[in-house]
Each structure stands twice: as C-alpha cells, then as structure tokens.
C-alpha cells in the first residue's frame, strides 16, 4: 500500500473540516475525489502536503510505511509527494529554470545523490516542456508571474514531470482550463502514469475524467468520503448532480 489514511480529522482555526477520512491508494492506481464546493477536497491535499495551518486532531496517514504526519513539508515532497495546486503562487524574479534546478537538486541531496549535471538537466527540461507543449523560454520567466490560468496549470504538470513523484495529487487542475489546455494537461498525466506511481485527482466535474480514466471515484461530502465506486460513479454524478448525495447524508 502506498498511502493509507485512517479516520483523519483536521481543523483550521478550531473549525473541523475533515471529519474521519479513510482512503487507501496503491501504486499504479488513479483515484478521483469529487464533491461539491467547500467539503474539504483541497484541505485533504493540504493536510497530506503538511501545511501547518491545518491541525490534525485525530487519525493517521501512512505513506510508504512511514508516519507521514511526522515529516516536515519538504521531506514529504522529497519522499515523492507532489501537489498540483489549484492556485499556484507567483514568485517574482525567480526563474522556473532556477526554481526547478534547486528543487531537483535538493531532492537528489536528500537521496544522497550529487547535483544533476547541467546538460542532463537542460535535456530533461526540454523533454518535459514538449510533454505539456510549453513553447516559451523558461529561463526568462519567473515562477507563475504573469502566467494565464492555463499556463499556470501546464506549469504545474511540467513541474510534476520534472520531479517524478510517486504520489501526485492534482487539486482542481482542470478548473479554468479551456478544452485544448485540458487535453494537454490530461495527456501529460497519462504519459506519466506508470505501475510505480499513483495519482489522486481532485475535481469538481466529470469532464477531466473523460481524458484521465480513474480506477476509483470517491465522493467527499462534509469532511467524509460518503461514496466510492468506479468510473461509472462519476458519470452518475455528472448526470444527477450532487443534490441526491446531499439529501442522502444531510
């Protein structure tokens, strides 16, 4: 088992958002987490990443057999957890090249490897730019600064490709994307899928799941996973909306 979440409760400023999440993810799987707004989908991603504003009050998360909750943010990332953010932050003056080189090398250092040779790094950059169809020269562009919504999301997938995570959690990567960008993003994810890694795709709509076919679909509502199924569940949600679930559980 790659990731095991048991009875996870988390709150922010004393307000409980996650109220007993249970989830198991194996290598090679793609899970989709769906649900109405404000039910804790992004909070779940933040808690897995280790964001300090959220306090875990109960439950546990085991990742690669380790107690994930004890690891600092950067070590979780170095152990292969990647979050594709819904609203990637801008870092003025820091080029994407420099940002990625720093990240790649810190991860390598953690694993006891030497820094990546410059030539190899640039080759990797070029390959992954092609993967998500980024044309611009990334050495001149600051991280997310002046990027359109679509560019920011492509940039998240690009970074994911560079860092080769074991567990990638994509938080509403499809929101605000036009159909071309959606296809590019989905394509990137599909090419990166292997037997050795897993994806958790947080989304509001079924649309993205036409391109990235999940093995499991979970519905998150009021801080709990209230329903799990296969990809058919996503279609059902698309058709009926979330109201029937709300009625069932309110």
């Amino acid at each position: 088992m790659l990731l095991t979440i048991k009875n996870l409760h988390a709150s922010i400023n004393g307000k409980e958002i996650l109220r007993g999440i249970n989830l198991e993810v194996k290598k090679g799987e793609v899970h989709a987490i769906m649900g109405p707004n404000g039910t804790g989908k992004s909070t779940l991603a933040s808690v897995i990443a280790g964001r300090e504003v959220f306090e875990v009050t109960e439950g546990e998360i085991t990742y690669k057999g380790k107690n994930l909750l004890k690891l600092p943010i950067e070590d979780r990332a170095r152990e292969g957890i990647f979050i594709g953010f819904q609203y990637p932050v801008e870092i003025p003056g820091v080029s994407i090249t420099n940002f990625m080189r720093t990240a790649v090398n810190e991860i390598r250092k953690y694993k006891g490897l030497d820094p990546i040779p410059a030539v190899e790094f640039l080759k990797l950059m070029e390959e992954n730019k092609r993967l998500v169809e980024i044309q611009s020269n990334l050495t001149n562009r600051s991280v997310n600064e002046g990027f359109s919504g679509g560019e920011k999301k492509k940039n998240e997938i690009f970074q994911m490709a560079m860092l080769e995570p074991t567990l990638a959690i994509l938080d509403e990567t499809d929101s605000g994307l036009d159909i071309d960008a959606l296809r590019i993003v989905a394509n990137g994810v599909n090419k990166l899928r292997t037997k050795e890694n897993a994806f958790v795709i947080i989304t509001h709509y079924q649309r993205l799941l036409d391109y990235i076919v999940p093995d499991f679909v979970h519905v998150l509502f009021e801080g709990r996973i209230v329903k799990s199924g296969n990809k058919e569940l996503a279609l059902e949600l698309e058709e009926k909306g979330y109201d029937w679930i709300k009625k069932e559980f309110e």
């Binding site: 979050i83 991860i107 860092l163």
Partner: peptide
C-alpha cells in the same frame, strides 16, 4: 510562497534565499 517552495522539496533556508534573490533581481 514558502509553502509552494517547500512542497517542491526546497528547504526553508534555500526557499528564503530563492525568494529574496528573486526580489532583488
């Protein structure tokens, strides 16, 4: 910004170095 850097595996001190150097670029 710090969280974003750390989530990419960049430690706190390097992250601050990066951000400050970006600011002063």
């Amino acid at each position: 910004q710090l969280f974003y850097c750390q989530q990419r595996g960049i430690g706190m001190e390097s992250a601050i170095g990066l951000i400050v150097n970006g600011y002063a670029k």
